[in-house]
Amino acid sequence: MIYTFKLSGENLNLSKFEVETLFKTKCTRRGKIATCNLTQAPKKLKEIADRSALIKKIYKNGVKVWEFKQGRYKLREPMARPAFHPTGMKPKMARMLVNLTGAKKEILDPFCGIGATLIEAGVLGLKVSGSDYDPRMLDRTKTNLKYYKIKPKKIFKADATKLSEHLKKNSVEAITCDPPYGQSSTTSDKNLRNLFRTFMIEAHKVLKKKGRLVIIIPSKLKIPGLIPKVHGGLTRQIVVLEK
Rank of each mutant, 00 (worst) to 15 (best):
A103W: 00
Y59M: 06
S52W: 11
L54Q: 10
L38R: 07
G71T: 14
V63T: 14
N37V: 12
P110N: 07
M96R: 08
T101D: 01
P86S: 02
P78N: 05
E47T: 04
A53Y: 09
R81P: 02
R72N: 08
R72C: 10
T117C: 10
T35Q: 05
R95M: 08
L38C: 07
P91V: 02
M93G: 00
D109C: 02
I48T: 06
M96L: 14
H85W: 07
S52F: 09
Y59G: 06
G62H: 11
R76S: 01
L54M: 10
K104D: 02
A103Q: 02
K44F: 04
L75G: 08
G88K: 12
L75A: 12
A103H: 02
G115W: 08
K74C: 00
F111W: 09
K104A: 05
M79N: 14
K46N: 09
M79G: 11
T87W: 05
I107R: 00
E106F: 00
G113D: 11
N61W: 10
F84I: 06
K104Q: 08
P42Y: 11
M79E: 14
A94V: 00
F68Y: 15
D109L: 02
M79L: 13
Y73L: 06
C36L: 07
L38E: 07
D109G: 04
R81L: 03
A53H: 10
K64N: 13
G62Q: 09
T39Y: 15
K104F: 01
T39R: 14
E47K: 09
C112A: 09
T117I: 03
A41F: 00
L100R: 05
K69T: 15
K92F: 07
E77N: 00
P86N: 01
V65Q: 06
M89Y: 04
E47V: 01
A94K: 05
G62L: 07
M96V: 08
R95P: 07
R81K: 09
P78E: 04
V98P: 01
L38H: 10
K104L: 03
F84K: 14
A41Y: 01
I58N: 13
L38W: 10
A83V: 06
I48W: 03
K69E: 15
Q70D: 15
L100W: 03
K69N: 15
T87G: 08
E77K: 03
K69P: 14
T35A: 06
F84R: 14
K104N: 06
K56H: 15
A80M: 08
G113Q: 12
D50M: 11
L38K: 06
K32Y: 06
K46I: 09
L54I: 07
K105M: 02
G62W: 09
C36W: 11
K105W: 01
I48P: 01
F111V: 13
E47L: 02
I107P: 00
M93S: 03
D109H: 05
P78I: 00
T35L: 03
E47P: 01
I33D: 05
M79Q: 15
P78Q: 06
G71K: 12
P42W: 10
V63L: 09
V65L: 05
H85A: 07
M89P: 04
A103F: 01
N99D: 04
M93H: 02
G88R: 12
